[in-house]
Simulated assay, not measured.
Amino acid sequence: MSVDFSAEIPALRATLTSIEKVTDMDALKKRIAVLEEQAAAPDLWDDPESAQKVTSQMSHAQAEFRRINDLESRIDDLEIMVELAEEENDSDARHEAEKELASIRKTLEELEVRTLLSGEYDERSAVITIRAGAGGVDAADFAEILMRMYLRWAEHRGYPTKVMDTSYAEEAGLKSVTFEVDAPYAYGTLSVEGGTHRLVRISPFDNQGRRQTSFAAVEVIPLIESTDSIEIPENELKVDVFRSSGPGGQSVNTTDSAVRMTHIPTGIVVSMQDEKSQIQNRAAALRVMQSRLLLVKKQEEDAKRKELAGDVKASWGDQMRSYVLNPYQMVKDLRTEYSEGNPQSVFDGEIDGFLEAGIRWRVGQGTSED
């Protein structure tokens, strides 16, 4: 079917104009100027953590500005490509124009989804915790598969990641893992992944080759920043120290540097063993604890608002996505109805379709953060 460029190109321009308006390009330009000024300060690297944050924010803001800005010239170039192809009746040139049209449309769709992330914490980096659920060793293996899926997704996009805590299962896989995805809007984008994930497959751990259903829970929270006002009284925290352990329970650290922090009133527990010293692990554990309490506080506020509005039904089902490898191959999101027929590519980090559908679904449900 022939592409109608005379309708498609104006539609691209209209979408771009809408994105530029929502993004507020002038404000983004001013923010880049401020960050460039901070990055040029001679004492910037006196505080390496702060310096890293400034340079990271600056490069992400510059990349976002370029990405939007470059689209205008890409659409102009596309228009010229189409004119030349039609003048010369060149089918190869027209085919190239169609490919470029699809590429521009995909970039615009991604940017359009970004404009839907307007929640209070959507701009933050994300902390993801995956826990093996029902299903024994298959569930532990599934938890590790999901961790790899999210890390690969971040890797494809050039987002830095950091595994903060790992609890290995005895036979294979993971009991739980916590890791950070450090990028603007990582929380807003990945927050739709929170919930129960289900895997159906012929178990590689069953010598009779039976089909096994297993579950893993994914929790996504925004990373707390030092400017956030979540104060936790010392008497509400219980801190235990222990030795870091690797697969099979082997000790990977000869000192008691790992930290387990418990918030006594809520029972929330955070373990941290990635950093080299007990002080660093304690500081990292406190940040994640503050992030979890921030989310709990917000969920309580949301529940109260829903109760006042007379809406007490849960927004998220117990099971939000199924990964079926047998008797057929399909990954399907049960909230959005979005599906993919190639589970392996999904496990390799190709989850943008699910993320975009999830964000649009959430906005449609009116459950986006206000």
Rank of each mutant, 00 (worst) to 15 (best):
L111H: 14
L111Y: 06
E112W: 12
E112Q: 14
E112I: 10
V113N: 03
V113C: 02
V113S: 00
R114H: 14
R114S: 11
R114L: 15
R114T: 14
T115F: 11
T115A: 09
L116S: 00
L116M: 13
L116V: 04
L116H: 05
L116Q: 04
L116R: 10
L117C: 00
L117I: 12
S118Y: 09
S118K: 12
S118W: 01
S118A: 15
S118V: 03
G119M: 00
E120D: 11
E120S: 14
D122E: 10
D122Y: 00
D122K: 07
D122A: 09
D122P: 13
E123C: 14
E123Y: 11
R124T: 12
R124H: 13
R124D: 13
S125M: 01
S125N: 00
S125L: 08
A126R: 03
V127E: 03
V127N: 00
V127F: 04
I128W: 05
I128M: 14
I128K: 02
T129E: 15
T129V: 02
T129F: 11
I130G: 07
R131F: 02
R131T: 09
A132H: 01
A132E: 04
A132Y: 02
A132N: 04
G133D: 10
G133L: 09
A134N: 12
A134K: 05
A134H: 05
G135A: 03
G135W: 01
G135C: 07
G136L: 12
G136K: 14
G136S: 13
V137Q: 13
V137W: 02
V137T: 15
V137E: 15
V137M: 00
V137S: 03
V137G: 03
V137R: 02
V137L: 03
D138E: 12
A139Q: 09
A139S: 05
A139T: 02
A140L: 00
A140Y: 03
A140I: 06
A140T: 00
D141P: 01
D141Y: 07
D141K: 01
D141M: 08
F142D: 00
F142L: 08
F142Y: 10
F142T: 00
F142Q: 01
A143M: 07
A143H: 08
A143Y: 06
E144A: 15
I145F: 11
I145P: 06
I145D: 06
I145Y: 09
L146W: 12
L146S: 01
L146V: 15
L146D: 10
